[in-house]
Simulated scan of single mutants.
Amino acid sequence: MKECIIGIDAGTASVKGLLVDATGTIVATASAPLQLSTPRPGWAEQSPEDWWKATI
């Protein structure tokens, strides 16, 4: 089995993942969209549970 590194970017619109091998070659990528709640003007909220679900 190859040694690899996983990178995860949790942003406001999506969670993105990247799998890179020891030589720097991208093995796989993935992304999952996130919901952004705007209950009032100027407010923005996200659920940490949504971040977790999008990551796993």
Rank of each mutant, 00 (worst) to 15 (best):
T12M: 02
A28Q: 12
S47I: 00
P33R: 15
K16E: 01
V20I: 14
W52Q: 06
I8M: 13
A32D: 03
A28K: 13
A22R: 09
A10M: 13
T29N: 10
A13M: 05
A13K: 08
W43K: 10
K53L: 14
T12I: 07
A10F: 11
G24K: 07
V20H: 01
T12H: 09
I56A: 06
K53T: 09
V20Y: 01
W43N: 06
A13W: 00
T23Y: 05
D21W: 05
P41Y: 05
I56E: 12
A30E: 15
W51Q: 00
A22S: 12
Q35L: 15
G7D: 07
W43H: 13
S31D: 04
T55I: 07
E45Q: 11
L34R: 02
S14W: 07
A54W: 01
I5M: 12
L34V: 04
V15C: 01
G11V: 10
W52K: 08
A10L: 11
V27F: 09
A30G: 15
G42W: 06
Q35G: 08
I26W: 05
G7Y: 03
S37Q: 14
S14H: 07
G24R: 08
R40C: 03
A44V: 12
Q35Y: 13
G17P: 00
T38F: 10
L36R: 13
D21V: 06
W43M: 08
V15G: 00
A28T: 04
G7E: 11
A22H: 07
A10E: 03
K2R: 15
M1W: 13
P33N: 15
P33Q: 15
I26S: 10
A28L: 10
I8R: 10
G24M: 06
Q46W: 04
A32G: 05
T23E: 12
T23F: 04
G17H: 02
A13P: 01
I6E: 05
I6P: 00
V20D: 02
T23D: 14
P41L: 08
I56V: 14
W43Q: 09
M1C: 15
A44S: 12
T25Q: 12
W51H: 03
V27R: 12
D9I: 07
W52C: 05
S14C: 10
I8H: 13
G11I: 06
A54E: 02
L18S: 01
L19C: 02
I6F: 10
S47Q: 10
S31V: 10
P48Q: 04
A30L: 14
A32M: 14
T23P: 00
Q46G: 01
A30C: 14
A22V: 08
I8C: 14
A44F: 07
A54D: 03
